[in-house]
């Protein structure tokens, strides 16, 4: 009886979550689908974005995200592996590092934006540019990626490490062949979370990658991100709501594509490794 109640509650929560998000997404789809067309994706914006398309903005968004990922993936994974595999859990230094990371995950994005503005744009003289935006986003994503990856690695049973050590396998090999594949769903989840946060970021990017909605010619050019575009259209441009919802829909579709491909990659890796292991 209690068991049945529990099952019911679980299905109910799932239902509530699904409905709430259904409401939100259907709102975006209904309002935005009218704007969606091939020319919306391939034209330059006109009349402050009320008309025309969002092609340069999509390109800028992808460039900013790409820059951030190139930096954050090696840094984040490396740091997480070091934390999880090459240090003693109980050591003071590791615990304080972990605490610092948690605090940094909580720095409001607008503060990252101001930091990026002062440090990357100003101190390193990168100006308003895609590079500054990408670097700022990388700072934001770093703590999230490190903590989720570390959690994934910590969850791998210690038996496997002991077995590896007993067989004389180097930690590096063990890591690559067993631990990372095993933790790959967690790593992917962390990566997707941080990518999600990055694509959704507005506050930090207004201050760093800027407002220019022209096609960027290099990473040193200022480029407007999609989320910034949506914010500007909905809060600052008279009569921009339709285009704002249209852009939001494009952004959501982009996130779906990124998510699907990342999940597929991680599953492919996991299966390949684990199958060989067994």
């Amino acid at each position: 009886m209690i068991d049945r109640c529990f099952t019911f509650i679980i299905w109910l929560t799932a239902g509530i979550v699904f409905l709430a998000f259904g409401w939100l997404i259907s709102e975006v789809v209904v309002q935005g689908v009218g704007k969606l067309s091939w020319s919306f994706l391939t034209d330059e914006p006109a009349r402050s974005g009320r008309e025309g398309g969002i092609y340069p903005i999509i390109v800028s968004t992808l460039l900013i995200l790409g820059t951030a990922l190139v930096i954050v993936i090696p840094l984040g994974l490396g740091s997480a592996i070091w934390l999880a595999e090459f240090t003693k859990k109980s050591s003071k230094r590791v615990q304080s590092t972990r605490l610092i990371l948690d605090v940094l995950a909580g720095v409001p994005s607008i503060v990252f934006g101001l930091f990026g503005y002062a440090f990357f744009c100003g101190f390193l003289d990168l100006g308003f540019s895609i590079l500054s935006g990408g670097l700022t986003l990388a700072c934001m994503m770093l703590p999230i990626l490190i903590r989720t990856t570390e959690a994934g690695l910590t969850a791998v049973p210690n038996d496997w490490r002991r077995a590896g050590a007993a067989l004389g396998v180097s930690r590096t090999t063990l890591l690559w062949q067993v631990l990372l594949p095993y933790a790959s769903p967690a790593i992917t989840a962390g990566l997707l979370l941080s990518i999600g946060r990055a694509t959704a970021e507005t506050a930090a990017l207004i201050f760093t990658s800027g407002y220019v909605d022209r096609m960027p010619e290099s990473l040193n050019d200022s480029g407007r991100a999609l989320a910034v575009h949506i914010y500007d259209l909905s809060m600052n441009v008279v009569g921009g709501d339709k285009a704002a919802y249209g852009s939001a829909l494009v952004l959501i579709i982009m996130v779906v594509i990124i998510n699907l491909s990342a999940n597929a990659l991680s599953e492919f890796w996991l299966e390949k490794k684990i199958n060989r292991l067994q």
Binding site: F21, L24, V28, L192, G196, I230, Y231, A248
Partner: peptide, 20 residues
């Protein structure tokens, strides 16, 4: 599909939540 819907939500810009 349910879990992809949830992952998708992590990527919706806060502006869209705010607008809604």
């Amino acid at each position: 599909p349910f879990s992809s819907v949830v992952t998708l939500l992590a990527g919706i810009p806060s502006v869209v939540f705010g607008l809604w």
